[in-house]
């Protein structure tokens, strides 16, 4: 158990060995992950941050290498280990999914893959303090993907806010080892465990029932030419806010900057919503129309990624739904595709 009054000390001790990030409400009211050294501004009352935590491990822009007359230097992050406090189950799970792309040596059994050193420098060795959701939002649908307000996948320690104190339950050996080093913790009583279960139960009961995606992975390739895509894509303005806010979208562009013998190679976030994303050197663009790009986003998450990695590339955080300026709701789209004949009326 961690007494609420000791949270500040806990975070500062943590900050002694880690770069600590946590959801913070800024003075302008925005709610985002930010670096913290104390408990000041930490906000556990709000559920999902505006942007996802993927940028902590996969920055919006990063230098892969720099060069000048003295040679080439890797831009590999030489940062201190990272700890994140208060990460929701959907986000912790999204990092585990991204680790399949950037961190794992194996995609399918027997297929060796490249491991991204930039990602690994940040994610391997990171400690994730996950939070049990107290108040799921109307945009939340983690339960469509096997998640729940008390999911633990991708977490090292699961934290339940019990009001006066936090219950810290280790999930991984690393989490357990770290908690063992914290002297401000006390042993949890059975009543604390009961209270924690009650919080998780109450939050779970607030979730709307999930929609079953069973069989959708197999159906989607058949729906590639379905006329329904025109209606689905019509309102989308390809702004890309969904992909930038998404915790699992991970496409990037590589850009070179340089002149007079010095320069750098950068990796920056990119989006399948942009026409330039697939523009080929010849001038041909296989996804020239909005419809094709909208279809790609759905297909990648729910057909291609499952085919390659065995899991859907969505954790139901609901950010894309909340952020969309034209109200594109992926849940509605999936429901429609699940019952294509009713799509137009859905």
């Amino acid at each position: 158990m961690l007494d609420r009054t000791a949270l500040g000390r806990f975070i500062s001790v943590l900050a002694g060995s880690y770069d600590v990030h946590a959801p913070v409400t800024a003075c302008d009211g925005s709610f985002e992950y930010a670096p913290v050294r104390t408990a000041e501004g930490l906000d556990g009352t709000r559920t999902v941050t505006g942007l996802s935590p993927k940028g902590i491990f996969f920055p919006k822009d990063e230098v892969l290498f720099q060069y000048d007359g003295d040679g080439i230097r890797s831009g590999e992050a030489s940062c201190r280990p990272i700890a994140v406090w208060g990460m929701r189950g959907c986000d912790a799970r999204s990092l585990a999914l991204l680790d399949r792309v950037f961190g794992s040596a194996v995609q399918k059994p027997g297929e060796e893959r490249f491991q991204d050193p930039y990602w690994k420098a940040r994610y391997d060795g990171a400690v994730i303090f996950g939070a049990v959701c107290v108040k799921p939002l109307s945009t939340c649908f983690c339960n469509w993907f096997g998640g729940s307000p008390s999911s633990t996948e991708g977490m090292d320690v699961q934290v339940t806010d019990l009001g006066d104190a936090f219950l810290l339950a280790p999930v991984t050996p690393e989490g357990e080892e770290l908690l063992g080093r914290m002297d401000m913790l006390t042993q949890a009583a059975d009543t604390d465990l009961d209270a924690s279960r009650e919080v998780a139960h109450r939050a779970g009961a607030m979730m709307s029932p999930p929609f079953s995606l069973e069989g959708l992975d197999r159906r989607l390739p058949e729906l590639f030419h379905d006329p329904a895509w025109a209606g689905i894509a019509a309102p989308c303005v390809n702004c890309g806010a969904c992909t930038f806010a998404c915790p699992t979208c991970h496409c990037f562009d590589v850009q070179d900057e340089g002149r007079n013998g010095r320069g750098r190679r950068l990796r920056v976030w990119d989006s399948c919503m942009f026409s330039s994303f697939t523009l080929e050197a010849s001038g041909h663009n296989p996804r020239a129309r909005s419809l094709e790009r909208v279809r790609q986003r759905v297909m990648h998450k729910f057909s291609y990624f499952p085919a390659n990695y065995g899991e859907r590339l969505c954790t139901g955080c609901g950010r894309c739904v909340a952020v969309c300026p034209v109200g594109f709701d992926i849940r509605k789209v999936l429901r429609g595709l699940g019952a294509p004949r009713d799509l137009k009326k859905d």
């Binding site: 303005v237 806010a241 992909t243 930038f244």
Partner: peptide, 17 residues
């Protein structure tokens, strides 16, 4: 964050490239 959502929702931003 350079997502260009501002550009895409803008009715006046319509340069071909």
């Amino acid at each position: 964050i350079r997502c260009y959502a501002c550009r895409n929702v803008c009715p006046s931003c319509y340069c071909e490239v």
